[in-house]
């Protein structure tokens, strides 16, 4: 059994609860022990350095120090949390001045950080620490015949100076996972592009045109479903899909899964366990296809 300090991020504990539930479901099946971090704060949503760079260091340095105190690496399920924690980790490891300043603050709350924690997104935790072979062993449903469009999003890949899981120009981790589950990865240009979420409350038109065009391209490649490793991308792609369709003037109707839900389906979870009723675009068609695929 492998143990992580579990950092779900804010959205998975608020509007995206189905992601948190799906993660806990697959962790149980795959033998991943998730230790909750009730003291951990929000990472700052990818924009907190626009308010104050040191605040980003302090609050995320605190989260890293909390995990280090327990001797654990952190597992994330959100791209933006992954990037923010990874950026701060890199800064604290490589910049003694930043580390000293952060540790002065941490000392006042009884913590200290030395740079030992690794931040891993669940996609790459499953690939590197569980292994796709074990995933195959545990699967009870095959995703055979299902065309799955992986949508990486930005912050799990870029900048590669901070997040170093995959080849930033031609990532394959997601496709390998889909193949391991028996599915057929759909190849499309926008798989590594931006969903636009960071400006969804600032410039909705920019934001939804990015999400809409990614969905449209995957649809044109006959995808049955799109999967994302990030709850922020999920909001853009699923919750705002109707707005995106209007904005780009195209018919869109592509179900969007959180990555742990895709794994959950293969591990035998049912519709209710994965919280599919909370999605904007229905997953009933997809689940009907999967139901016939017993291993």
């Amino acid at each position: 059994m492998i143990t992580y300090a579990y950092y779900p991020g804010c959205v998975a504990q608020e509007s995206g609860k189905e992601l948190d539930n799906a993660t806990k479901f697959i962790a149980g099946k795959l033998g991943i022990n998730l230790i909750p971090m009730p003291e951990a704060s929000c990472c700052g949503g990818g924009v907190i350095d626009g308010f104050d760079k040191n605040l980003k260091l302090f609050i995320n340095g605190r989260t890293l120090a909390l995990a280090e105190k327990e001797g654990l690496d952190i597992m994330t399920i959100c791209n933006t949390c992954t990037l923010t924690l990874s950026e701060v980790n890199e800064e604290l490891i490589n910049n003694p001045e930043s580390l000293e300043k952060t540790n002065e603050y941490l000392a006042k709350i009884g913590l200290r950080y030395t740079g030992k924690v690794k931040v891993k997104h669940i996609l790459y935790a499953v690939r590197d620490d569980i292994g796709f072979d074990k995933l195959k062993e545990k699967a009870v449903k095959s995703l055979k015949g299902i065309k799955i469009a992986p949508f990486y999003g930005c912050h799990i890949l870029r900048p590669s100076s901070a997040v170093k899981f995959d080849d930033v120009e031609n990532p394959q981790g997601f496709e390998e996972l889909i193949k391991a589950l028996g599915g057929e990865p759909v190849s499309y240009a926008r798989r590594t592009k931006c969903c636009g979420f960071q400006t969804i409350l600032v410039n909705e038109s920019t934001s939804t045109s990015l999400a809409g065009n990614a969905i449209y391209e995957a649809q044109e490649k006959n995808a049955d479903v799109m999967v994302t490793p990030c709850p922020l991308c999920h909001l853009s792609l699923d919750t705002y899909q109707t707005v995106a369709a209007k904005n780009i003037n195209k018919k869109l109707s592509l179900p969007i899964l959180h990555l742990p839900q895709l794994i959950g389906i293969a591990l035998g979870a049912d519709y209710a366990e994965m919280g599919f009723s909370r999605h904007n675009v229905s997953l009933r068609g997809l689940m009907a296809k999967v139901r016939q695929n017993d291993i």
């Binding site: 924009v47 912050h155 100076s161 990015l210």
Partner: peptide, 28 residues
């Protein structure tokens, strides 16, 4: 404020510049 924070400008700058970090500094 219309930057989408996709980090592509930093990733693909052939001169190692990070425009997105400059943009965040403008925010701050």
């Amino acid at each position: 404020w219309d930057c989408v924070h996709c980090q592509s400008c930093e990733q693909f700058c052939p001169k190692g510049i990070s425009p997105v970090k400059s943009i965040v500094k403008l925010h701050e």
